[in-house]
């Protein structure tokens, strides 16, 4: 177990694994997403209250879920980096943050597209939307930190500090936004709605699974690129590319 972990955090080993598994993982994720979304769009029943529009949840919910999960995994990576100085953890954070931002934006965008016909507005300052917006800002802020330092180690550490504090803060922000919301707004709009039907749930779960696979695949690819950037002068990188030729 320990050995496996040590191997996974070594750059050359990870690079090789990612190189081999990326095409399969990527293809599989596309297939699973297609399965989930197509099933959801063409074969699941129409929502009684919302009509056909609701079908965007097959994109919206997975995106929102992925957007949050990425942040939590980044928090774990930041702790790992701050305590054990494992470089792979910082590679992970730096590779995943842009993905997190993209998926958070996607969640907000699909939410707006969903909200317009359903509730007649693109945007409400509802607790969940507000904290998702803050999550997006947090991701962008972290990304803006990438180029602020001359030293790579400094960037890594700064990013971990900010990710960690943001991680501690995120639940607090969510809670306070909820309190703020209950005080400011009489609950006219609720996003949760009625409990979800099984026939909708299964394609949704498939779609969520597909999104996670996709993020894993793309994340691995991005990590490979980041590793190459850092290790460009190392022998193992040269060996790989000379072998290729």
């Amino acid at each position: 177990m320990r050995q496996l972990f040590n191997q996974l955090i070594s750059f050359p080993y990870f690079f090789k694994i990612a190189q081999i598994s990326f095409p399969y993982l990527f293809l599989l994720s596309i297939l699973v997403i297609l399965l989930g979304v197509l099933w959801g769009v063409f074969f699941s029943p129409v929502d009684v209250t919302q009509g056909e529009v609701y079908r965007i949840i097959y994109l919206h919910v997975p995106a929102a879920s992925v957007a949050q999960s990425i942040y939590y995994t980044m928090v774990i990576a930041s702790i790992t980096y701050l305590i054990w100085r494992i470089k792979m953890a910082s590679v992970f954070m730096i590779s995943m943050a842009p993905l997190g931002a993209i998926f958070t934006f996607l969640a907000l965008f699909t939410g707006a597209v969903w909200g317009q016909p359903t509730w007649g507005t693109w945007w409400v300052w509802d607790a969940r939307l507000t904290s998702t917006l803050i999550l997006l800002i947090l991701y962008l802020a972290i990304i803006s930190l990438f180029s602020s330092f001359d030293r790579r180690a400094s960037t890594d550490q700064a990013v971990s500090i900010v990710v960690l504090i943001g991680g501690i803060n995120l639940p607090i922000i969510k809670l306070s936004v909820e309190w703020w919301n209950t005080l400011h707004q009489s609950a006219s709009i609720t996003l949760s709605g009625s409990s979800i039907d099984n026939e909708m749930l299964i394609p949704l779960l498939i779609s969520i699974f597909g999104f996670y696979l996709y993020v894993t695949a793309i994340g691995m690819r991005k990590m490979q690129v980041e590793i190459l950037k850092r290790e460009i002068s190392h022998n193992w990188v040269k060996e790989i590319f000379i072998e290729k030729r």
Binding site: A141, G166, N169
Partner: peptide, 11 residues
Amino acid sequence: IVIPMCLPALI
């Protein structure tokens, strides 16, 4: 970076 972190205090 820090303004989003200050939000709980503001709220």
